[in-house]
Write a protein that binds this DNA or RNA. Structure first.
Lengths: 210, 210
DNA sequence: ACCTGAACACCGTTCAAGT
DNA sequence: ACCTGAACACCGTTCAAGT
């Protein structure tokens, strides 16, 4: 297992993020990244052992861009700050995001964020034994929302709401039927994010020792 | 836009799921699927317009495998049933799962599941205006959890908990420090899933008109 | 109606060699 | 110490043709 160089790693990550921004996650290839740097694909293998490792490093870098909340802020503010920070990063780099949910958060950047959440939950009064689970749960929630928003799970897809419902006979979809009045409006995803955050607070409070 | 055949579509989806099960999501290629069926890659283009469309159909098929809860069951039971059903499907087909969070749920199978959740939330007493958002939120939560579980975000990765913490000086990680006693145990993901479901119920109840 | 064959423009990665 | 060149075993997709 040869030792890796690291002098030009940041430069390589920059190039990768530029490509993602311009042409999407699928446009990342060892060849395209190398080309942008004026290198041969093989030169990258001096810095990363594989494409997978390069992508993990990109993820680590991304989490580094989430601004840390002010020290000693109240827990609700900390969680709000981090959630919006995560969302902003997601919107800047929409296409890299699937990585966040599919790789363990073990980079220093990830650790720093997790630590702030731990602190917030502890000061909120959540019993220590519940804190790690609740952190995973909140993070899943925020990342899941942001990923869905950014990757189109919340979007209409190729069918508008009523055409979508028409795929099945109405008697198979009584719930959709009862909600018809409410379903055809557009989703206000800012309001939805805010409402979801409120739900997160409810979850935290329900775990606070009384 | 030529019309697509559909006679052999189910057969093609079966072959695709077999490959995923044996060799992972990355092993799906038009060539590997075709080969398993004794066809030329090009034959598949008679049934699906692209690899992307094939993958969407695989996702639709997957959601079809989630068993529907008994008609008229109490809302908590409905949500529990669907959540565990989703989780079981995820465990049977771990590698396809990233698709679920990144493509809009517009297949008939997805609609049927969503409709059951709508009904459950309505009978729980959630105001209709809140139902679609809460459905998206609950689904995100369950899928996010299940995806994290199955794809390794909750797992240790290549570093054990204490080695992971050692990447940063302890004074940068006061939260981890305070939780040291609790952090080194293994995650009981069954218990965690259960606890998360309880949190989901809390969320629903907090939205019920009183 | 359904499928094949050949071709095009790509991939990640290995190995041995160059400066 | 850092990088290149050539090669290997792959991709998705287009187009024209075969039965």
């Amino acid at each position: 297992m040869r030792k890796l160089k690291d002098a030009r790693r940041p430069e390589i990550l920059d190039a990768t993020l530029e490509i993602v921004a311009e042409r999407g996650l699928d446009a990342i290839s060892m060849r395209s990244v190398a080309q942008r740097l004026g290198l041969t694909p093989m030169a990258l293998y001096g810095y990363f052992r594989s494409k997978e490792e390069l992508l993990d490093a990109v993820l680590g870098r991304l989490l580094t861009e989430v601004p840390l909340p002010p020290e000693g802020a109240p827990w609700r503010e900390v969680l709000t700050h981090l959630a919006y920070g995560m969302r902003a990063v997601a919107q800047r780099h929409p296409t890299v995001l699937p990585l966040v949910l599919t790789r363990p958060g073990i980079s220093p950047g990830a650790l720093r964020l997790i630590d702030r959440i731990y602190q917030a939950l502890l000061t909120a009064g959540v019993p220590p034994g519940e804190v790690p689970r609740l952190e995973r749960s909140l993070s899943t929630f925020v990342i899941g929302h942001v990923l869905s928003e950014v990757s189109g799970r919340f979007s209409l897809g190729t069918l508008d709401p009523s055409a979508r419902r028409a795929q099945l006979p109405p008697e198979e979809l009584p719930g959709h039927d009862a909600l018809a009045a409410v379903l055809d409006g557009p989703v206000d995803s800012e309001a939805e994010f805010r409402a979801n955050l409120d739900d997160v607070f409810v979850m935290v409070e329900s775990r606070v020792a009384r």
